[in-house]
Amino acid sequence: MNELKEILLAEDDPNDVELTLNALEDYNLSNSVQVVHNGEEAIDYLHRHGAFSTIPSGNPALILLDLKMPKVDGLEVLRHIKSDADLQNIPTVMLTSSREEKDIIESYKLGVNAYVVKPVDFQQFIDAVKKLGLFWALYNEPPPGSIRKYR
């Protein structure tokens, strides 16, 4: 039995959420995905604040961050994660439409683990997200203390 590790998906666009979840469905990865809709929620979730205070504590094995989000954007969330001693080891991947060089440079400066541009082509998009999920949620050994779910 494969253990599943939790993925946190921070994405404001419901279409993108649906497409991403659709892509992750194939390997039954979608069940382990926690979706938040902006940066603020992402940070709240990671610290179990507000609406998330009842959820048992533990870090996700992977954070997928959109760049442009209302309230607190992806780069700020990334900055928060990488400067917090409890969170900084969580593998964090930018999953974004932006191929802007300054975004890429800034993300790597902040310590992003990967930067993936969402392909416009559906098949390529499905492919990319699937591979991402497979790699980080199944094969990669997350830092100790990550939430594991079992299928």
Binding site: N15, S97, V120, F122
Partner: peptide
Amino acid sequence: SPLRHIIG
């Protein structure tokens, strides 16, 4: 983004 959604 919207284009990607259309295609998707």
